[in-house]
Amino acid sequence: MKLNRRQFFKICAAGMGGSSVTMMGFSPTPALAEVRAFKLARATETRNMCPYCSVSCGVLIYSTGDKSKNAKADIIHIEGDPDNPVNRGSLCPKGAGLLDMVKSPNRLKFPEVREPGSTEWKRISWDEAINRIAKHMKTDRDANFMTQNKDGVTVNRWPTTGLLASSAASNEAGYLTVKTFRSLGITALDTQARI
């Protein structure tokens, strides 16, 4: 009989005694203290990855709520994924503290602007942020777009705006970044990979 951890928790939660679980041919690992198993049994488990170093340890994220449309999920626990062939359930001191990163008091929650010369941030709406940034971009691009270089070669670049890209973004976000920014003509493009 093959059960994953999640199903295993469910069985525990359903009130099956430890001894009968063992009789079924497997036993809980010592790390799975029963109290926590009960707590996590009601949680939704999501497979994810530690975003810190490039070992990319597998993690299991436990959240309240069952992912139905109107239920707001709240992450309550993160631990190593025992199935992941690299970390096999372990996490280092960085990864073990991931919940505190998710819950950091310094998470940004809404768009803000700091006006020229100002000493303060000001909250703005997404619409305002996107409109204002896009306007800046278009003004700069239209004014400084270079169609040809001095030798008459078509170069079609926009040299006066640049981007530093995240190495913590997913491949899909990275791909869309490069696709859109290249299409705008940006060549001043670099990533954390260099440093």
């Binding site: 994810n48 975003p51 990319s56 940004l108 700091r114």
Partner: peptide
């Protein structure tokens, strides 16, 4: 003029990461 736009973290996104051993792994 400085804009600050709030983005999600790993736990709040679906997609793939590639570890240094070139293994591409999906997360939810």
């Amino acid at each position: 003029e400085v804009f600050r736009l709030p983005a999600g973290l790993f736990a709040e996104q679906t997609g793939s990461f590639t570890n240094s051993g070139r293994v591409v792994q999906w997360h939810w």
